[in-house]
Amino acid sequence: MTCAVEVRDVRRVFRTHAGMLAPERVVRAVDGVSFALPAGHVLGIVGESGCGKSTLARMILGLLPISEGEILVDGRSLAAMDRRERARLIQPVFQDPFSSLNPRQRVRDIVALPLAAQGNISGRQQRDQVMEMLARVGISAEIADRLPAQLSGGQRQRVAIARALVLHPRIVVCDEPTSALDVSVQAQILNLLAELRRDLRLTYLFISHNLAVVEHIATEVAVMYLGRFVERAPVDELFRDPRHPYTRALLSSVLTPEPGNGIPDVGLGETYPDPANIPPGCRFHPRCPVALNRCRTQAPDNIVTHGRLTECLLAEGAQGTR
């Protein structure tokens, strides 16, 4: 069976110069990520700001060249595809619906763009398909003639979803699609995305820093830290039995609406990760509450135990004990 998305040891390096005399800053934004996502699944990717989630997403969308590695979409190399073919397979939904819609275009033209770019769809067909997709995401016909500035945040995100789905792609990459929305609107959009996935048999890559949202929508979850997936597991297992110390810290920092429980101590300390300066050994060791001496030198890359990726030296010895 071919996977919807297959990512093989992908890396991306950014080189920036702060000034003439300053040394070059080399940011390893994505530092060796591999995974295969079967069709119809939803991979949730969580992690702190700057850990490389968006960089990975943009590479999978073909918007950013890869430094190393290979990405296959629907069994074929992304690098070998032309832009029209790629657009028919994979589409994005971005975080900020205020910047993801061209402020100078009407809703109907925004949604028609992927169809128009195919170059072989008549104007009449385009119009019909746009209106059908807008209706599908809950945007009424009279809104089609408005400009983005005249829409609410939720409506804009619906328009962005309509644009992503109008070509009936197989894969949708959602980069924090609800982080900029209010909770009541977030719930509407999450329900819409779940419904569309069922009806249109879509595969999602769903990036979020909200673990509860990921738990709600994902079938499997990858936890990203400084450019790598440090843990990856089916959603129930990951939330029931988190194995990587960073996953545990992330989970314990979620504030559920249970009064009286107070704020938990996350135990990650004062140091903040810097992708221009990745620690040797285990990249998490400066913040790890259970770090061992050998964690400073020995990198736990690609450790798989019991079919689960857990990049921690403790994972082999201490399976399931915590």
Binding site: R58, L61, G62, L63, R83, R84, R86, A87, R88, I90, Q91, P92, F94, Q95, D96, S99, S100, L101, N102, P103, R104, Q105, L113, P114, A116, A117, Q118, A160, R163, L167
Partner: peptide, 26 residues
Amino acid sequence: NLDYIAAAQAAGASRRHILLREVLPN
């Protein structure tokens, strides 16, 4: 650097379209 440019690229739009219709009016 705005997301609507990225969205247009992902939509398969040509450079010409992106420069004339997405960038220039803005």
